[in-house]
Simulated assay, not measured.
Amino acid sequence: MTVSVLVVDDSAFFRRRVTEILESNSQIKVIGSANDGRQAVEQAKVLRPDVITMDIEMPVMNGIDAVREIMRDAPCPILMFSSLTHEGATATLNALEAGAADFLPKKFEDVARNREDAVKTLQDRVLAIAGKPALRRSSPPRPSAVSRAKPQEAEPSVRPGSDRFARSTPPPTRTSTRESEPSSPRVVTERLTINRAYQVLAIGTSTGGPVALQKILTQLPQNFPYPIVMVQHMPAAFTKAFSQRLDGLCKISVREAEDGDSLQPGVAYLAPGGKQMLIEGRAGAARLRVREDNSGRVTYKPSVDLTFASLSKVYGGKVLGVILTGMGADGREGARMLKEQGATIWAQDEASCVVYGMPQAVASAGISSRSVSLNQMASALLTEVGYGD
């Protein structure tokens, strides 16, 4: 089956370049092009491509507004091209929030070792997001100002039976155990009896991860009982902007990890792009070590495998590890090491993934004990760590 692509950019040179790269793969056919966001919206309605590649800065209508309109009127997986700057990161995150599936640097050689790798990277991304039913829908609403506002004062400890965190919706009738059925998340946070089997929550993800992480973290209460360590495949220029965005949306604190940070409950630490994040010390007094990695031996920087492996040495089995949407198999070996120590590993289910690569790797290897839909992940995590109904 051939994947049809609409190429959108205000530069004729870049449109030709992207077209040539994509069509050098026999599985991809460019069926049209547009030089501004307004044309992209109209072409998307007429051509109904399998994938759209989209620039951000364009005349008439920018890429972010175009994504929003396309996802409303003619939903389609969209791959954004971005500059590797703080401003580019912010714009790209806005595009992902509007409904785009993934992004690449506009100089996509920046994420590859040579031209051949760069060509393959672009082709693989387009093929990976093509035809995903989960991407052919309207983008989720942005969290309201009320839901993302942090309390002015620290919240008191939650007593069993307390209604400090009330249900936002009534519980559904328990007629099925299928996790993928509910159309919207239901986070139950009525009482807290901490599950002492865990001391840290670890999350690894790649393609589709920014939206998935935002969906999960915005539903966690401020007094979440464990530290959270997160590895998202993302360029160095993006991770600080992403952590700042999450911090503004979430009740928990979210920060880009720094060397020497001590792990604190209710704080999420995002591995910096282009570096490796390791955990050292002992459980209850662990610290983060952020290191440059110029070895060339590890493909991903940051790497889920390396972070998870270091967690296995410090925390042993007292880790709840989650592998979310992403290409490839990063995280499988690190998750295997955690499981050998007695840790619990979950994977996002195929239906809710942008790309079912990383979760499939741990599921197929028999490492994960549970597959959970993205809509239900936050609720399932809260129940597992001690919040429940």
Rank of each mutant, 00 (worst) to 15 (best):
R159E: 14
R191L: 08
A237T: 15
P227D: 14
L246Q: 06
V200F: 12
P141C: 03
P140I: 15
S139F: 06
L122A: 05
P143M: 08
V119L: 05
E181A: 01
T218G: 01
R142D: 03
S144W: 01
A130R: 02
A130M: 03
G161Q: 03
I129C: 09
P235S: 12
D247T: 13
S147I: 09
K132W: 03
E155A: 09
V200N: 10
P185S: 11
S243Q: 08
L246K: 09
L192V: 04
V200K: 07
Q214E: 12
A118R: 00
L127M: 07
E155H: 00
K150M: 00
T175Y: 00
V188M: 03
A149H: 07
V200G: 14
A134Y: 13
P151E: 10
Q219K: 10
G208W: 01
R136Y: 01
L135I: 10
P151C: 07
P143R: 02
F224Y: 10
P151H: 13
P160I: 03
E179C: 05
A202R: 07
S176E: 07
L217V: 15
A202Q: 05
Y226T: 05
S206M: 00
G208S: 12
R148E: 00
Q232Y: 14
F242Q: 05
L217F: 13
D163G: 05
R245D: 04
P170R: 09
M234Q: 08
S147N: 07
P133G: 00
L127S: 02
G161L: 07
T189R: 06
E190D: 13
S206H: 14
D163W: 09
I203S: 01
Y226K: 08
K150V: 01
L122Y: 02
G204H: 12
V187L: 04
V188R: 01
E190H: 04
P170M: 14
F242I: 14
D163Y: 10
V146T: 06
G208K: 01
Q214P: 02
S147Y: 00
R148T: 09
V146E: 12
P133C: 01
L192S: 06
